[in-house]
């Protein structure tokens, strides 16, 4: 079995810690915590899932896409439209995922023939085109007026919280699997040198489409959960360029092509936003921007790279201490 703990050779204490954290998170809604904690939890799980999804293609394969908001919006609108038509909102999630998958294949095939900045520019165009199209499909999407979800079923946060938690765990298991499988190796090979990978027999387009499709499925489901939770969506928000940028920034800050980097990036994003937004509205953007500049300049591997350095430093200090200890005993 490939679990969260095994892939990065996580030792038993860390595995136990992870299990405890998951148990604690699952039990939160049932111990009467402040609803705002569940709100923050929902957002955190959602952002972790989104940034991990982006990391599959952007981190492992090095293909920088600015168009993931299109998948998010498709998932959100699939849920919004079908829920309003009387379909159970949870049954709408696979529909949103399939729509996002179909769209990812449709745009991925031509776009993956481009590389580097040309690919990134093409994805910006696709994301913005989707936003404008949805704004003008007023009869289906409600246009800029947005779409309101049915509120007859009540407003309990617990189902959304647990669904987002479940999605996050599933996404982390999937990323863990990818990282330790042939897929992960192929994607890393594409990132290192696409031509060389091709020459070695890696079907690069197929693997990139696979990574794009998996990311789209996750983001589509996340969009559906967002619509269920917010009860209101509109194209400028769910297809917005800001969302695409946020999805990219989180893994970059946390650490690309790692399992825990996007998780850390998402948590830092939500925590910084929540801590500073109420008191200093623009400071969270400044803080995030500064963090990004520092990471790009000094630690391209993100916060995970920083922790790696810290771990090495602590280890070397510990080793030095161990080396000095016997001589001290001798002097006694």
């Amino acid at each position: 079995m490939i679990g969260l703990a095994s892939a990065e050779n996580t030792p038993r204490p860390v595995t136990l810690l992870l299990i405890l954290v998951i148990i604690a998170l699952v039990s939160l809604p049932f111990v009467g915590v402040n609803p705002y904690i569940l709100h923050l939890g929902f957002l955190t799980f959602l952002y972790v899932s989104l940034s991990s999804a982006w990391n599959i293609l952007g981190g492992f394969a090095g293909q920088v896409s600015f168009g993931y908001s299109a998948f998010f919006g498709l998932g959100a609108y699939a849920t919004g439209i079908l829920w309003n038509a009387g379909v159970n909102p949870y049954l709408t999630l696979p529909v949103g995922a399939l729509l996002a998958l179909a769209f990812s294949l449709l745009v991925g095939y031509p776009c993956f023939r481009l590389s580097g900045p040309y690919f990134a520019i093409a994805t910006i165009g696709i994301g913005e085109a989707m936003r404008v199209i949805m704004l003008n499909l007023g009869d289906i999407t409600g246009g800029a007026s947005g779409l309101t979800m049915p509120t007859t079923g009540g407003f309990s946060k617990t189902p959304s919280y647990l669904s987002a938690l479940l999605l996050m765990i599933a996404v982390l298991l999937l990323v863990n699997y990818i990282r330790n499988s042939r897929i992960g190796l192929a994607l890393l090979a594409i990132k290192e040198d696409q031509d060389a990978a091709e020459a070695l027999g890696v079907p690069t387009i197929r693997y990139k489409l696979l990574a794009h499709g998996l990311g789209a499925i996750i983001v589509g489901i996340a969009g559906g959960l967002y619509a269920q939770y917010m009860f209101y969506i509109e194209p400028n928000n769910v297809f917005g360029f800001n969302l695409s940028i946020s999805l990219l920034l989180m893994p970059v800050i946390g650490g690309l092509a790692t399992l825990w980097g996007p998780v850390l990036g998402a948590i830092v994003f939500v925590v910084i936003q929540d801590t500073l937004m109420a008191s200093f509205p623009h400071l969270h953007l400044l803080t995030y921007g500064l963090l990004l500049v520092v990471i790009v300049l000094f630690e391209p591997d993100g916060l995970m790279g920083l922790f790696g350095r810290l771990a090495r430093f602590l280890r070397s200090r510990y080793a030095e201490g161990q080396a000095r200890a016997p001589s001290g005993e001798q002097s006694l």
Binding site: T10, G308, L310
Partner: peptide
């Protein structure tokens, strides 16, 4: 990497 993961968690 293990220590980094531990620190990150």
């Amino acid at each position: 990497a293990t220590r980094a993961v531990g620190l990150a968690i």
